[in-house]
Design a protein around this nucleic acid. Structure first.
Lengths: 114, 114
DNA sequence: CAAACACTTAAGTAAGTACTTGACTGTGGT
DNA sequence: ACCACAGTCAAGTACTTACTTAAGTGTTTG
């Protein structure tokens, strides 16, 4: 549970690439081999394997070798962690904006102090 | 609305750095100057300015010069876009897992076909 | 006015990223 | 047995990132 920082670094970094996001999108439809993941991408298979390794290193996908093919599937937990970080920050700024809204409302339509 | 791709690239990239996330966390508490953002970070002011530029380039923060200080505040939209991309994928895999669950349930306790 | 302050700009550097090509290793179908 | 398939490994290259230091600009403040 420690090294949350490194994992967030890695996860956001992994998602910061269109090709890898395309792979993740494909994997949300179900498991796929590396060659299947490579199909819509204009690059060598070796490059795709390297992208898979990045996604695996941050825990976003898990892979398993079946015969001569490597099957990849998505592992929700890591992505949820990234999502959660943003959601938590949002709570922060939404709270602030709500309070700011309250202040502005109060200025616009002043109420009696009890 | 186009170039969603570039912005997602940039936004995730921006969040893939602990120092920048620290700045964002600070900014969710309210606007701050560059020097205030620099305070908890062990690096030169010039480096902090560069981080601010990264956050500004992807639209996560907006800045404005007030006298000799540059005030920074968070701009929720860009971060929401990143959050939304993950949320959308989640809908994908949660749907799949639900359907998988249904299948497993059906195998465990088979029902009559109507 | 002079010094302190809050950046700003430019240039340089070390490390990391996203590829490539080419040679190689198990696996599977005929 | 043989050859094609699905990766794997290693090395090399162009580009980007995350800093640094040093010198400069415009703003307050005493």
């Amino acid at each position: 549970m420690l090294n949350q920082t490194i994992d967030l670094d890695r996860t956001f970094q992994a998602l910061a690439d269109k090709s890898r996001r395309t792979m993740v999108e494909r994997l949300t439809l179900g498991p796929a081999s590396v060659t299947e993941l490579a199909e819509p991408l204009a690059m060598s298979l070796a490059a795709v394997v390297q992208h898979v390794q990045v996604l695996e290193a941050c825990g976003v996908v898990k892979t398993e070798k079946v015969g001569r093919t490597r099957m990849c599937r998505i592992e929700p937990a890591a992505m949820t962690a990234a999502e959660q970080w943003i959601t938590d920050r949002r709570r922060g700024w939404e709270g602030r904006l709500d309070r700011l809204g309250d202040v502005l409302n109060e200025v616009a339509t002043p109420e009696e102090k009890p």
